[in-house]
Design a protein around this nucleic acid. Structure first.
Lengths: 329, 329
DNA sequence: TTGAAAGCGATACCAC
DNA sequence: GTGGTATCGCTTTCAA
């Protein structure tokens, strides 16, 4: 900038005015400056600018794994919101490790990002007191952090599972099993609880059949074999997420059985399988968008009390939930 | 930092030394400074640090759409390489628009990112001369940019399609059709050309049946109907990518036909369909990793001539490529 | 071992 | 309209 000023015989301040389209520069002066800028290929250094302004026009996103469709859809949505608002997005994977998550958060805060959206790795706050003290607005997604007073965007896990159970019951199923993921995950526990309570509420017979993960095709195969030879054979299965759905589909194919099923999380090709798979759909893109919007509201000075938003899920009915095969008719 | 210095009764320089673990500070002084840092919750402002050092320890990634699995896998790989090297990653979607791509590149360069990995939206360089003049290392991925002298990481489109054709021929197919994507894409054209030349090289009968996209389930359904009633009915289909594979599967289901098929791009659940789908697998994660490694090599001072690396594809044989149904036996 | 002062590249404030 | 100068928060240089 100093070079441009010298070359154009003006002060740096005037160059700055031109670059930032500030008023109060004579048109011909502005032209002269612009010409020099062009000639010298000058480009404002935003880094320097930002240290002066205190804001970096950058937000951070911390997730478990960017390659996972659930997170990448969130990422795309957050990036979009950022771009619209002339902000840039720094993304980081914590790979499920609270330690790494914390390191990543520290790095983002050292960069003075204006705010952060994070899908927390654990349920206890991983940010240390210093991070908290930085005052950087943080919005949590998908799972809450214990004791945190931040904006949080969750999905309606309970409602999602309830709709799955109700759907199966409406199609005549009475013996439904739930295959959940690792109960270490808050979402997995939420879904399990909802299954159990809905099971009870609808007066389904017997104790609820529940098996929490982590599951593999093999583990599910064994379970299905046991449940099938029960006196009241299981006729339908609800899975706790994407991964379990996949394992369950493999297991059923291996066993050559075709129980009814409702999967948690929609997936491409769900409609192409035989039968097409009915699923509970959470909308990661909508969740990401919502979280980013919350964050930007804070950046714009919204001082209202922290909000927790629960996003609705939607049952996408295909065919796998309807009754078929089995002993009854 | 000045606050810490004042509080600890040392100079800012000493604080700086402590923060950066530079040698030449008496242990007890260091301790004192650390205590104050802790107490005040001081955190170095990396933004300020970086303007002094000239490097930002940040790289950029520009793709079409982060939600697309192909790109998100690239993103995850690039982020990983960056993280390993203590760099942060700014990701941006250009949404297929060269204009937006250019705006995004300009923004990254204004931030003085150390380097950029980009999956170019078009084949003509979208970076203007000023961007080029910035000297920021750029690595292109997936498709080349005309006239650019940058490192480029491509996938072996030709080899991929060739392996698909050969596989089908080995299973007795002689009448194979190619359903490509929009020929506006360089990759789509590459694959078409390879299909045509392999068709010729293997001496398959008749002119090669090729239809380029964009395709929909409907357009493919119509094509299959026509090709089926030919005097030499098509017995196998090769698709040009993910999207086309999906449309083709839907079309075949609608028509209740089951031609043999090899899809381009692997997809989750390919193994669960009936029959399991044989595919040509490109490895986006490996491509992203390679590109990032190339970039970092440049950042470390590698001055060798720009390289173009072509990554191998792999045929994942399931069952959809074997002969079944149809007139011959 | 420590510190004072200059400088990085911009913006803010206040004169002129 | 335009420019000088202090300043942002840190590192670099060099002297003590």
């Amino acid at each position: 900038m100093a070079d441009v000023a010298a070359e154009a015989h003006v002060s740096v301040k005037t160059v700055s005015r031109v670059v930032n389209h500030e008023p109060g520069v004579r048109p011909d002066t502005a032209e002269r400056v612009k010409a020099v800028i062009e000639r010298l290929g000058f480009r404002r250094n935003d880094g320097a600018r930002l240290i002066r302004q205190g804001r970096t026009f950058t937000i951070g996103l911390v997730v478990e794994d960017l390659a996972n469709p659930f997170y990448s859809q969130i990422g795309a949505a957050v990036e979009r919101e950022a771009r619209i608002r002339q902000h840039q997005l720094i993304t980081a994977s914590a790979e499920g490790s609270p330690t790494r998550e914390r390191a990543v958060l520290e790095a983002l805060i050292a960069r003075r990002v204006d705010g952060i959206v994070v899908v927390p790795a654990g349920e206890t706050p991983s940010a240390d007191p210093t991070v908290e003290a930085s005052g950087t607005p943080i919005v949590y997604m998908d799972r809450p952090v214990r004791g945190a007073t931040n904006d949080t965007v969750l999905s309606d896990n309970q409602g999602g599972v309830r709709s799955a159970v109700e759907h199966l019951v409406a199609h005549g199923h009475r013996h439904i099993a739930f295959l959940g993921d690792d109960p270490g995950f808050w979402t997995a526990r939420q879904r399990r609880e909802s299954f159990v309570s809905t099971h009870r509420a609808l007066g389904l017979p017997g104790p609820p059949r529940v098996s929490m993960g982590p599951h593999t095709t093999t583990s599910i195969r064994d379970l299905l074999a046991v449940w099938a030879h029960d006196s009241d054979p299981t006729t339908a299965v609800i899975t706790g997420n994407n991964r379990v759905t996949l394992a369950a589909l493999h297991a059923m194919r291996d066993l050559r059985v075709s129980l009814s099923m409702v999967g948690y999380d929609d997936f491409e090709l769900a409609g192409l399988l035989d039968p097409p798979v009915t699923v509970v759909h959470q909308d990661p893109a909508a969740m990401g968008q919502k979280a980013a919007q919350q964050l930007f509201a804070r950046l714009l000075g919204d001082e209202s009390a922290p909000q927790t938003v629960v996003m609705a899920t939607r049952l996408i009915v295909r065919a796998s939930g309807t009754r078929r095969g089995g002993p009854a008719r």
